[in-house]
Amino acid sequence: MKLNLKIWRQKNNKTKGKIQDYILDGVEEDMSFLEMLDFLNNKLLNEGGEPVAFDHDCREGICGSCSLFINGVAHGPERGTTTCQLHMRKFKDGDTIFIEPFRSRAFPVIKDLIVDRSSFDRIQQAGAYVSVNTSGNTQDANAIPVSKEDADEAFNSATCIGCGACVASCKNSSAMLFTAAKISQYSLLPQGKVERKQRALNMVKQMDLEGFGACTNTGACEAQCPKEISIKNIARMNREYLMANIKK
């Protein structure tokens, strides 16, 4: 198929970027979206040009490196899919595709489609852990039973891949879903409950410091989350945060 690509090009964070047009012929249905970009880059390189920079690594939907705003939707049109899992069979010959980076004040552009998501790491560093030492001399793993429902629910929250689609799709650039997923995971497990108050306070504080917006319950984050993390997590985080503030 032949595609009309409109791609955001930006040399670095000091220069202004713009949308550039590319016509790409010979795209096959079985290619993944990123393989289509590889194909474009190969063409650009053979013509002596500079390839389009984009983040990617595992290409199986788990590392959370890939991003891309495709036709105005984070990770493209398919639900519950990362860009690397999106295949060109979902597009038609002659389609025009806009490809942009994830946009947020807290995600500055590094080059072309690559953004700096280290703000996410800093939120996690503020408290997304259990303060247990790594000596291995903890109690036996089966010493505290955890109900299957809680374990499964904690697992569902823990499947967040930290890609930032929630932020990119939110009109307020809120990182609530990301932060909430981690807070939820720990608040559901007995091991995480000990520090729940301080964790909620510290992580929310860091989230605000990074310049992410507030939540207005639009639900775009949940709709575009490639791992379909539930917005219920935000409710749980709000509860944790409120309780922590009351019982400070």
């Binding site: 852990y129 247990v132 291995g136 793993a141 697992f155």
Partner: peptide
């Protein structure tokens, strides 16, 4: 020890 350690860290293994 690994399993003990990971459970203590809040790794949600299947139960």
């Amino acid at each position: 020890n690994i399993i003990d350690q990971c459970v203590a860290q809040g790794v949600p293994f299947a139960r």
